[in-house]
Simulated scan of single mutants.
Amino acid sequence: MNSKITLSTSKMYSLFVRSRLNKCTNKRFLGNLQSESTRQNELFDLEKKRQREEIGRIDKIEVEVQCKSESKTYVMNKLISTPYDCARHLNETIMNKTAVALINGETLWHMHKPLPDSCKLEFLDYKVSQPGQVNKAFWRTCSFLLGAVASNAFKDKVDVQLHSFPIPNVKSGSFVYDIQLSLDNWVPTSSELRVLSMEMIKFCQQAHPIECLDVTADFALVLFKENPHKTMQIPDIAANNNGKVTLFRAGPNVDISKGPMIANTNQLGRTTVTNVIKLDTDIKGSPVYRFQGVALPSSIVLNHFAYGLLEERAKNLNSARIPGSQDVTTEDNSFMAQATN
């Protein structure tokens, strides 16, 4: 009996994805008015709504929030309430300054990801005594946002295919996104780098909450069907994550990452796209370029001279693994990920 129920649910889910995909695709091609980003966002919203409706009866959980020297316990909704919802019960400063949450003293948790069970919850900001985990979440988010900005900057002139970004490594001196562009030998001018930097700053100042959604590999393949690099990576990502692929969205931009990321784009402060370097790779088609940058959280102030040193260092080619056609490069299996495991 259980197997029949599972099969029926699976068929229903497949039909749901297929019907929504056809609807979005038909709208796109009939008038050619819908962009690929719009199609992805429609599917993301529909899947988010479907998952919410699938929860059914709402169970309650108890979340013990550690705040300075005291703790408070809140009754929240299982699989619906997020750490950010818990922060709403405290104060606006915690809501705005927290980068990531920590569950039961050991598991980093995205601020906008629903809580699965009762737990102890801590909020980590950028001035914690041991900032390593927060720094990685911040660096990972910077890579994600760099890819988003590059996609938008070139959409009217150049074919852009996001490839991947390596696991965050602050010691490398730069955050990175490897992107395939239909430009043969592009060497960006200082003016072009400044434009990219300004676009990233403007995007972050729009204060986009960074959403998180776990989906099946099948759904992810539908979502990224126009990106050959992502479709190649998705089966491997799902195989190492209990069949799931974790999506993140900021504004209209959707991407894949193991996470967690920071809560809001406005937590990025001083930001510079420092270099774009053509990579020597055997990936077919257009060249792959390594976009590099450096940034500080908005709550961290650094003098101009010191920040200038960080910018100069971030111009050097980041030594993270260069993607190739014979392997599947993702955030999980990058060179630095293997080196630190």
Rank of each mutant, 00 (worst) to 15 (best):
W109C: 00
N240T: 10
L309P: 00
G269V: 09
V128C: 01
L268N: 04
G269S: 08
S118E: 03
Q40L: 11
F224N: 05
E106Q: 10
S81R: 07
T231F: 10
K171T: 00
L221G: 12
F305K: 15
E47G: 04
E311Y: 08
H89S: 05
I167F: 11
G147E: 09
R20T: 07
F154C: 05
L108K: 08
Q180D: 03
S257T: 13
S197R: 14
I80E: 07
V222N: 15
A314R: 14
Q206R: 14
F203M: 14
T107D: 02
G105T: 03
E311M: 15
L213Q: 11
F175E: 01
F29C: 03
P323Q: 10
D59K: 12
Q292K: 12
K60G: 00
S182G: 06
Q161G: 01
F248P: 02
I5T: 09
I61S: 06
V176W: 11
I322R: 07
P188Q: 13
V328D: 06
S319W: 10
E70W: 09
N32W: 10
D178R: 14
E199L: 15
S257H: 11
E36P: 04
P297I: 08
K23G: 04
I300R: 13
N26T: 12
Q338P: 02
L196Y: 09
N26E: 14
L247V: 08
L310H: 11
K284D: 05
N185W: 08
T93G: 01
T25R: 14
A153D: 06
K225S: 09
M76D: 04
S10Q: 14
G269Y: 13
V128R: 05
S164I: 00
R18A: 14
P116G: 03
A337D: 03
L310P: 01
A137N: 03
S10G: 05
V195C: 07
S71W: 06
H112L: 05
N41R: 13
Y177M: 06
I94P: 01
N242G: 08
L310R: 14
A137Y: 07
Q233V: 02
E53W: 07
A148W: 04
T141K: 08
K244V: 04
P114N: 01
L33A: 11
I237V: 13
M76R: 11
L183S: 02
V170R: 13
T281E: 07
F248E: 02
D282W: 10
I283G: 01
E47M: 15
N152W: 00
N26G: 05
C67E: 14
D236A: 12
S191C: 06
D184M: 06
T274R: 15
Q161P: 00
N135P: 00
I167V: 00
L181S: 01
